[in-house]
Simulated scan of single mutants.
Amino acid sequence: MSLIEIIVLALLQGFTEFLPISSSAHLLLPSQVFGWQDQGLAFDVAVHVGTLLAVVIYFRKEVAEILAAWFKSFGQQGQTEDSKLGWWIIIATIPTAIFGLLFKDFIEIYLRSAWVIATTTIVFGLLLWYADAKAQQIKTIYQLNWKSALILGLAQATAMIPGTSRSGITITAGLMLGLNKESAARFSFLMAIPVISMMGLYYSLDLALSGEPVAWGTLLLGAALSFISAYACIFFFLKIISRMGMMPFVIYRLLLGAALFAYLAW
């Protein structure tokens, strides 16, 4: 990989992992437009490690409180708001783990096309617009229950379809369940931690079994850039989401999907 490829792909991964605009659609563009080759398993591992570190470090206080409360809930302390939140995150992770095992190969073979990505970018962008415009948006994450956690988990599993956007569909589902914008985004980011961890572990095992040569300089640069861009993305997104709403991201998705269709039809 050239230096420009490393920089562009790592920054795209970091910025689009947590914005509701579909990372798969953006990572498709350089290969389609510039003819870049697949970045390889090792680079995938590196950029996912970078985004994982970003979300864990940003939410380090919440993560520590949730983990401590969850472990203490097995003792005399019993259930608290934070321990329940830990259970809701676990429940929300289960559908992705199951669907990942069952349908990964099918998705890789039949759904990783530019036409599918262009379609889902637009369709799920319109769903995000509907949720932002029509949902009540009055609840916080501490008002979730196991049923709403399962619904959010099923939404997260849907993001396995390229172009859907993991953060986009989970924020959409959160808004439809009545969460306010910041709470929907915050729970979406917390849900990302176990999912990205599973993805990183899966890619790491694939990498270990593949015998692919490792260019450590490339991986460190990719991880660093994805970490910086993902951390900045989370910080600014949570700062502006309540004031700005989802419409700018909806418009962007519609334009991106239209651009992909135009490019494919050209």
Rank of each mutant, 00 (worst) to 15 (best):
S204P: 07
A224G: 02
P95S: 08
K61L: 14
I117G: 07
V56R: 05
L179A: 09
S167N: 06
A46T: 00
G163C: 01
F103P: 04
I107C: 10
D105W: 00
S197M: 13
L102H: 04
E212S: 09
A215C: 01
G75D: 11
M247D: 12
S167Q: 05
F236V: 09
S113L: 07
V214N: 11
Y263V: 00
L28P: 05
Q32Y: 11
L12Y: 04
W146V: 06
T16S: 13
V8F: 10
F237R: 06
L127W: 13
A135L: 09
W129Y: 08
A223R: 00
P248W: 07
F236T: 04
L221I: 12
A192M: 11
W70E: 08
F34N: 11
V49L: 14
K84R: 15
S23M: 03
M1L: 14
M176D: 01
G257V: 01
L27Y: 00
M191A: 05
Y110R: 13
A159D: 01
S2R: 09
E62H: 12
Y252K: 07
G211E: 14
I66M: 10
V47K: 11
D82N: 10
A46G: 10
L27K: 00
V33P: 00
V116W: 03
S31F: 00
L85F: 02
Q143L: 08
D38R: 03
V55I: 15
A185V: 07
A68P: 08
A118N: 05
G222N: 13
G163S: 02
F236M: 00
L260P: 09
Y110K: 14
I151C: 11
S23D: 01
L175I: 01
Q13Y: 11
I251T: 15
F124V: 10
F71A: 03
G125Q: 06
K239T: 09
V123K: 04
S24G: 07
A155Q: 12
F59M: 07
L27C: 04
E5M: 15
F237S: 07
L9Q: 05
S188I: 05
L260Q: 11
W88E: 03
G222V: 13
S31N: 00
L144A: 09
W70R: 12
Q77C: 05
S183V: 06
K134H: 13
L220Q: 03
S183D: 14
A92H: 02
L67M: 15
S73I: 06
F227L: 15
S188T: 07
I228V: 15
P20L: 10
L152E: 09
F187D: 08
F15P: 02
F74W: 07
L205P: 03
E62Y: 10
K134T: 15
A192G: 15
A208S: 15
P30C: 01
I57M: 13
L260F: 13
I251M: 15
E17S: 11
K139T: 06
L205R: 04
C233Y: 10
S31C: 00
S31I: 00
L255G: 01
T140E: 08
A192T: 12
F18T: 02
M246E: 13
